[in-house]
């Protein structure tokens, strides 16, 4: 028997199953990053000394990464709009750009990390760097996860467009919501770790 409401919304809730599912998952992610941010606040406020963050880290690289991630967030929602309009070529273009954005973000991040390691700055150095590596590392893992999903939906997953377009559109929406969330986390990480 088919599971109802996988691609058409249930009338009384107005939502499809995957959409509720992803929002619930994002709620738990909010709690995860919320817990880590509260750890940051407690450790920083309780510290006797705290390094000048913007002197230790590279603000230009982080600004570049912020721009990259925000642009990729825009391209994935443009990809969704394209799917909804039935323009599958435009969809592939925008999703491709999103993937490039995610990959570029990781490349910049790798440069940043190797630069820190080269200066002998590692997680064990002090609690600021410990938090920096843990928070950005976890965020980078989220980027990797999103990249894998987006790559699938750009490549082999696009076949579903012909067999079940409504469900495919739902998948793009869900992948997009996740990707925007990753962007939102970075929007907070950027000032908290680099600027304050």
């Amino acid at each position: 028997m088919e599971i109802p409401y996988t691609s058409e919304p249930r009338p009384d809730t107005g939502l499809t199953n995957p959409k509720i599912g992803i929002w619930l998952f994002l709620a738990s992610e909010v709690m995860l990053f919320g817990s880590l941010f509260s750890a940051y606040a407690l450790l920083r406020m309780g510290a006797e000394t705290w390094p000048d963050q913007s002197a230790v880290l590279s603000v230009p690289l982080a600004t570049l990464n912020t721009v990259i991630l925000i642009v990729s967030s825009a391209t994935i929602v443009l990809a969704l709009a394209a799917v909804r309009a039935g323009r599958i070529d435009a969809y592939r273009r925008f999703m491709g750009l999103t993937i490039l954005g995610g990959a570029a973000f990781l490349v910049v991040k790798a440069f940043e990390y190797s630069d820190k390691f080269a200066q002998g700055l590692v997680p064990a150095t002090d609690n600021f760097l410990a938090l920096y590596f843990t928070l950005t590392g976890l965020h980078a893992l989220h980027v990797v996860g999103g990249l894998v999903v987006n790559l699938y939906l750009w490549g082999p997953g696009v076949r579903m467009w012909r067999t079940d377009p409504a469900r495919f559109t739902g998948r793009i929406e869900v992948a997009g919501l996740y990707w925007h969330f990753v962007d939102v986390v970075w929007i907070f990480l950027f000032p908290v770790l680099y600027l304050l």
């Binding site: 509720i20 709620a27 909010v30 709690m31 919320g34 606040a41 825009a74 997009g176």
Partner: peptide, 28 residues
């Protein structure tokens, strides 16, 4: 609001997010 289309989203999503936000504040 714009990219995630929270503007004009359904009550259930709002409810979940408000609950989550309250709990994050409680924790902090």
């Amino acid at each position: 609001a714009v990219f995630m289309h929270l503007k004009g989203e359904h009550a259930l999503v709002y409810g979940t997010l408000v609950l989550t936000a309250v709990l994050v504040v409680v924790l902090f």
